[in-house]
Nucleic acid binder design. Structure first.
Lengths: 222, 222
DNA sequence: TTGTCAACTGTCAGCGGCTGACATTAATTT
DNA sequence: AAATTAATGTCAGCCGCTGACAGTTGACAA
């Protein structure tokens, strides 16, 4: 019953129980994402996912609090990656500059973090799934807001400000997050679904912030 | 079987059928919001709402596509009110200026639009309910994005730009919407739940946009 | 090795949101 | 008054999700 995978090292590694758990969880995740990609999110039943892994529906709900969680399991990794990248920015940078560079750098290195669990193209297709499924999109936006709160606190800390009273960190992050979300949306409806494409779009949109703030766009149309 | 309400004018007015429909719909809406305020959104069953109006559950779902819709019925009126107000802004104003003035003016006159159907304090309590109920908050964010798309097109039109290619309208509206949402959130967690309070917070936050964009906040701390 | 304990799993029953189908009732038209 | 049309109730059923209980399977010590 042994597969070709490495079963050699038994020393100090997690026990059989842990390995089994991880395997079923991964299997559920993979099956779920695959089924979603083929039949859509709402067109896929939790029973189907569980059946594909030969596990009871009840077991599925012991690994994932709800159907959504399978979708956002990968998104979460990307988010954590961004936060880590932002934390690594030098404190001398202005807030919006740090956010901008962290976002771009984050896209450049996303593969290193996520790639070990799920291929990058699956991540991108999952993004598309989220954008195109209303209930997932709603959940995504809520999660984005929670992320924004974390980031706002982080920025406030960077600048030595009190996030509770000074609105500038919140505003800056709200602005930044709003622009990023508009970018995602445009990217997901476009044709080029590569990482490079969203990176490029992000740059363009962030470059448009300053011009957008100055009134009277009509004279310098392009 | 006649109540004290006006049943006199039978000429040209909507028939009995229409009036009955409107009455049950209003009754369902009122009962739902009241129950939500007392027991919370998730703690209230559709059956309870239907029973309170002495109507079958099935009938409820003939008036509202889902439970959420009762909550957002009032929010929708407020949104339409904002869009109308924005449309009325003089075309000479810069985009962000028009958005800002429309938002504030919209709060000043919200009572005139919504008041006829639901008292204003019910609207405010509904806002709170939305902010404090995760699933409603998620739905609210999605609706906000849809509204932003409309507004972005409207702004692009105002400025004579092509919304499909020029990112500036999208960016400006995303920025503006992000700030407004941060404002709502702060307001809903505060103590003063009056319209005046959210109006004031809105002003403060929008005033913080320009300073937030210039880097290095540390020197001019406040 | 064996037995005990803890953790993981399956089964079952049930709730709540939501829908289709069909019969019933009530308003409108002729 | 009869015929037509629209609103409603009833019923059965799917799906997401949960609690409770029992059975199975790893972990760990005797």
């Amino acid at each position: 019953m042994e597969t070709a995978t490495s079963v050699v090292e038994t020393a100090a590694g997690p026990g059989l129980r842990e390995r089994k758990k991880r395997r079923t969880r991964d299997a559920l995740l993979r099956s779920a994402l695959e089924l979603f990609a083929v039949q859509g999110y709402e067109g896929t039943t939790v029973d189907e996912i569980a059946d594909a892994v030969d596990v009871s529906q009840r077991t599925f709900f012991r690994y994932f609090a709800n159907k959504e969680e399978t979708v956002f399991a990968v998104a979460e990794m990307a988010e954590e990656h961004f936060v880590r990248t932002l934390r690594a920015r030098p404190p001398g940078e202005a807030p919006l500059e740090a956010l901008r560079r962290a976002a771009l750098e984050s896209w450049d290195t996303i593969g290193e973090t996520v790639g070990s669990v799920v291929p990058v193209d699956v991540l991108m297709r999952t993004c598309q799934l989220i954008e195109s499924t209303p209930v997932l999109f709603a959940a995504h936006l809520r999660r984005s807001m929670e992320l924004e709160e974390r980031v706002a606190r982080l920025i406030a800390e960077r600048e030595g400000l009190d996030a509770a009273t000074d609105p500038r960190p919140r505003v800056a992050v709200a602005l930044f997050g709003g622009v990023l979300r508009a970018t995602e949306r445009l990217w997901s409806t476009g044709e080029d679904l590569s990482v490079a494409a969203i990176r490029r779009l992000t740059t363009e949109h962030l470059d448009a912030v300053a011009p957008a703030l100055t009134g009277g766009w009509r004279e310098h149309a392009r």
